[in-house]
Amino acid sequence: HNGKLCKLKGIAPLQLGKCNITGWLLGNPECDSLLPARSWSYIVETPNSENGACYPGDLIDYEELREQLSSVSSLERFEIFPKESSWPNHTFNGVTVSCSHRGKSSFYRNLLWLTKKGDSYPKLTNSYVNNKGKEVLVLWGVHHPSSSDEQQSLYSNGNAYVSVASSNYNRRFTPEIAARPKVRDQHGRMNYYWTLLEPGDTIIFEATGNLIAPWYAFALSRGFESGIITSNASMHECNTKCQTPQGAINSNLPFQNIHPVTIGECPKYVRSTKLRMVTGLRNIPSIQYRGLFGAIAGFIEGGWTGMIDGWYGYHHQNEQGSGYAADQKSTQNAINGITNKVNSVIEKMNTQFTAVGKEFNNLEKRMENLNKKVDDGFLDIWTYNAELLVLLENERTLDFHDLNVKNLYEKVKSQLKNNAKEIGNGCFEFYHKCDNECMESVRNGTYDYPKYSEESKLNREKIDGVKLESMGVYQILAIYSTVASSLVLLVSLGAISFWMCSNGSLQCRICI
């Protein structure tokens, strides 16, 4: 991952900044910058967002509201009850120091605090018919004063009620008058409520006091790749198909172990950190130390980045220098085999997901714990399936590479015959000098055995068991695999060879 928040398929997220979902939807004055928000790819909250409900109280069923919003990608904020005409018999300019803005008392931008007009609070009834052709999110509140005197001074009615009804919602609220500790300079409380109004449905408000009335509502448009994440990451000019709280993932790998919460087309989250597919040879310690064997393909974004291909070729060293050249036929066979294998694994496992966190309130801790156990169970199954699949494929890959290298080895052996000696570690020792032209003939299969047989015969008789390297004779190393990324691999195959001279070296080696 890149540690950044990015656009998702070209669409920017909605960053709530210092506000949370509650503050944004109710219209906390400190969240005025969010009022123009219309569309987004996903919503970003920060872990310690401080601006929620400015007048103390709870947004009821907040967790369910977050779940609903996680599939919303755009909205239209509109005046559901026009301020100047909807409440002619009531005062609608209630403000509070708890919702101060720029040093002055204020109130929510989407709600109206209705109080008595003169000395009376006549029963009010108002309704709205949803003609938007889509779901409408309606929010309101109920004020709970701290004393009967406060109730009387604001609403005149000691036994007030609030009723809200639609086809799918029907509740009646009565204020709970009680002494409470002071929070944000208030002994009173406000509880906030919401409902989704279906197209064509009607919502009716009736009250004799204590109503925090809707002013603006939201017509919602769903987008199934949307979601809500909690993150401290910063926004950058970048684009992605998959976003996590820790950063964007741009990967076609089937798995990731970065974060379980994802938005967009994302690899499946697994616990494993070692889900690797081999593309090189079986481990040979001396070669492995030099980083030549054991190439791997990573299938977990965050564990290993991208696929690494092994390729086969020849390396030689003689009086004229040293050089490398790919054996294109065996390399292409290996590439085709690995590509098919990788595609097979991805096809089997690479279903892209959006995974969002589930919200539970403080009273639902047991449910949250149960949900976590269920999620953990599914996660263990996914991890096991992934590891088992790759384990089985790896064994076949190792066998496949062994065969490829063996074929190259036999190709060289059949040409050199007794003009060189096998020394048991995949290397041959020449009994004759071999210049670049000679080396090329070994690589392309045109090695002239009779041409060098007499010199080889004489050297075999002279050496008589002495280690060949100390006599200045020449080696050919018969097994060799270097490691390159897919891009470098293609470039390498396009070149005939490249040279690395070893000044004054008397050794001649050709490596497979």
Rank of each mutant, 00 (worst) to 15 (best):
N232R: 11
S234P: 14
S234V: 08
N239F: 07
T244Q: 09
G247Y: 04
P254L: 10
H259P: 00
H259D: 14
P260I: 01
V261S: 09
T273P: 11
T273V: 13
V278R: 00
V278P: 03
T279Y: 07
T279A: 05
S286K: 02
I287K: 15
Y289V: 10
R290V: 00
L292W: 01
L292Q: 01
L292V: 15
F293S: 04
F293W: 09
G294A: 14
I300H: 03
I300K: 01
G302C: 07
G310E: 04
G310S: 08
W311E: 06
G313Y: 15
H315A: 08
H316N: 00
Q317P: 00
N318P: 07
E319K: 08
Q320R: 03
Q320A: 11
S322D: 09
Y324N: 03
N336T: 15
G337Q: 15
T339F: 02
K341E: 10
N343V: 10
V345K: 02
K348Y: 01
M349I: 15
N350W: 04
F353I: 11
G357N: 07
G357E: 05
E359W: 05
N362Y: 12
R366M: 06
K373M: 11
D376F: 08
D376C: 04
F378A: 03
D380V: 07
I381A: 05
E387C: 08
E393K: 08
L403G: 09
L408D: 06
K411Q: 13
V412H: 07
L416S: 10
L416E: 03
K417M: 09
K417R: 15
A420E: 03
E422A: 13
N425E: 06
E429M: 08
D435L: 06
N436C: 10
C438S: 03
S441M: 10
G445R: 12
D448R: 12
D448Y: 11
D448M: 15
Y449E: 11
Y449F: 12
P450V: 11
Y452I: 12
E455G: 07
L458Q: 07
N459R: 14
D464G: 08
D464R: 14
D464I: 08
D464Y: 13
V473H: 08
V473T: 08
L477F: 14
I479P: 06
I479W: 11
S485L: 14
L487Q: 06
L489S: 06
G494C: 01
I496W: 02
W499V: 12
M500V: 03
C501M: 11
C501E: 03
N503D: 04
I510N: 03
I512Y: 01
